[in-house]
Design a protein around this nucleic acid. Structure first.
Length: 556
RNA sequence: GCGCCUGUAGCUCAGUCGGAUAGAGCGAAUGCCUUCUAAGCAUUAGGUCGCAGGUUCAAUUCCUGCCAGGCGCGCCA
């Protein structure tokens, strides 16, 4: 619909130019906005203001020319436009015919779950890496934000046509793993845990669990004992993370083990590749990647002078693995404490011969603060984990947890008030949206009981002329654009904010427009049309909630 | 010191590839259920969009400088 309107205006512009009424370069495409103020029509464009300078004419004059051309060439009614007005400094406000505007309901009911999907990213192979927690403990709140947002982004990108693979990178080698093993063994033997080891309470529980199943571990020689605790603890912890994420509705296509980067000479291949491109050198006994060639602050060590691999070696190998597995775009979702990595990862990609703009994207998620009893809970690795994903879900439920975490843009630090989420569930916007959905389902159940036919056949868009109906229709027509922009900008929170608006708009419609017949009234075609609109609204809310991984209950 | 993020209503936050009178929820005040889910709706109150310049028809949005807060700057992972 919107497209038809903008085509009409572009056509008018072209006609005006050929008439000599407009003498300037014409835009390729036109932006139609949905005005905030309803008095400004269904759509508005500021094209006349934009052209004023290049055409060397007053904006209002240009707007007049466009309006006149549209009218004179019979471009209004055939394109579903009922009214065109010029306002303010030269805005063109467009009002649609009810029948034409209401046709979107037919589109929604026809497409169903597919409404909102597009092909704007079709053909793009995207590797989406998120969470990637160390397998040395439970998932905490920071991970939880990404578990929700990353999963939703995956769904949004898929809806835009991209081929997405979600990946969890398991940091299963290096010092941290050894410290993990040492800590577990120390806990089992009830001796002091190393200073920089893991101190959370879960370590003791995990150690006990391991000892119970494997009583001999504590009797092995120290090195073997540490390795045994490490490897068993790793398996248990990883399984735990997988289970928790699965319950949270976040699923990964690939769990990628860091260790495997060093198998089958893959790392040698990586190093050869980087060498052949001329960015590797040896100094002070260490092997470096010259990332400063591409704007990094300093060069990075890949192989330390003692011959062991630095973490950056894995980073590089992992990136190259992703690219060689055929992904066009690698999206990294990192915590704010890792934002220093942006420069080096992009530079490393450039060292590998890639375009660091097109092939790599790094999204930084700011910290999640958590408040309980009006006091901030400080997260501390040493003291152990304050709140885990599992605990959060136990406290507030999966839907509320996911929704709250996705609702804010990730580059904003967010504050979660546990008390609020715990005791006042109705203060959470997720219920507002879910309630709208459940409410519609209730109405439709009643409609069915009353024998009202409200499918595609019985839908008469021209009957929906009430202000509330027009607003609601106009809003649900925006959904595909919202999904596309959420995908393009990698911002799933836009979906949440949008469906909140839809829910609100539905509640207002429901309040002012009786959907079903009153008392003994016979069902009319208006009842059917309104039921159809309600059904389409439910579909949009359902599709939106689905992109967030939140359920759309039919009863509440 | 350098880099990234943030500063919008009493609180938590949207909006910002420049657009008309800056929004929502919560909190405060007042109305609306004899028929569709009141977990809802309506009205009111509440703002120098951190500060100061600049760019232009138009700046909360873009640029520069400052102020305040968060985070990061290892041959750790």
């Amino acid at each position: 619909m919107q497209n038809k309107v903008s085509q009409a205006i572009l056509k008018a512009l072209a006609l005006a130019k050929s008439n000599g009424e407009l003498n300037c370069q014409l835009p390729q495409k036109l932006t139609l906005d949905r005005p905030k103020n309803r008095e400004h029509g269904d759509y508005a464009t500021s094209i006349a203001l934009a052209l004023a300078k290049v055409a060397n004419k007053q904006a209002r004059v240009i707007a007049e020319v466009i309006a006149k051309t549209l009218t004179d060439n019979n471009l209004l009614t055939p394109n579903g436009i009922s009214k065109i007005e010029i306002a303010g400094p030269g805005f063109i406000n467009i009002t649609l015919e009810s029948a034409s505007q209401g046709s979107v309901v037919v589109e929604i009911l026809t497409l169903g779950r597919k409404y909102g999907t597009s092909n704007s990213l079709t053909g793009k192979r995207i590797n989406l890496e998120f969470v990637s927690a160390n397998p040395t403990g439970p998932l905490h709140l920071g991970h939880t934000r990404w578990a929700a947002v990353g999963d939703s982004l995956g769904r949004v990108l898929t809806a835009a046509g991209a081929q997405v693979s979600r990946e969890f990178y398991i940091n299963d080698r290096g010092n941290q793993m050894d410290l993990f093993g040492q800590s577990l063994r120390a806990a089992a033997l009830e001796i002091d845990i190393p200073e920089n080891g893991y101190h959370g309470e879960y370590i003791v529980d995990l150690a006990n669990e391991i000892t119970k199943a494997n009583p001999t571990f504590t009797t092995l020689a120290e090195t073997e004992s540490i390795a045994a605790f490490r490897d068993t603890g790793y398996q248990l912890q990883l399984a735990q993370q997988q289970k928790v994420l699965d319950n949270f509705g976040t699923h990964f296509d690939t769990w990628f083990s860091e260790q495997t980067l060093y198998e089958h000479n893959f790392f040698d291949h990586v190093l050869d590749k980087l060498k052949s491109l001329g960015h590797v050198y040896v100094q002070d006994g260490a092997t470096w990647l010259r990332t400063t060639d591409f704007g990094d602050d300093k060069d990075r060590v890949m192989i330390k002078s003692d011959g062991s691999f630095a973490y950056f070696a894995s980073d590089s190998a992992y990136y190259i693995s992703k690219r060689e597995r055929g992904f066009d775009l690698c999206i990294y979702m990192l915590g704010a404490d890792h934002h220093g990595y942006v420069g080096r990862i992009k530079a490393m990609a450039a060292c590998a011969g890639d375009n660091s703009e097109d092939n790599v994207e790094i999204l930084i998620g700011q910290m999640v603060k958590i408040i309980e009893g009006s006091q901030e809970l400080k997260l501390s690795k040493r003291a152990g984990i304050i709140i885990t994903l599992e605990e959060l879900v136990e406290k507030v439920g999966k839907d509320a947890a996911r929704y709250t975490l996705i609702r804010y843009p990730t580059d904003t630090p967010m504050v979660m008030d546990v008390d609020l989420l715990k005791k006042n569930t109705n203060e959470n916007p997720v219920y507002y949206v879910q309630y709208a959905h459940a409410r519609i389902c209730a109405v439709l159940r009643n409609a069915k009981d009353l024998g009202i036919k409200f499918g595609l056949d019985a839908y008469s868009p021209e009957l929906l002329v009430h202000e509330r109906e027009r607003e609601l229709i106009g809003l649900i027509a925006q959904y595909p654009k919202i999904v596309a922009s959420a995908a393009l900008m990698r911002q799933p929170h836009r979906i949440a904010r949008y469906i909140e608006e839809v829910a609100g708009q539905f509640h207002r419609f429901y309040n002012d427009c009786r959907v079903l017949p009153l008392g003994d009234e016979k069902p009319s075609s208006l009842n059917a049309a309104r039921s159809g609109l309600s059904m389409a609204t439910a579909q949009v809310i359902n599709n939106g909630l689905d992109l967030l991984g939140v359920s759309a209950p039919e009863k509440m």
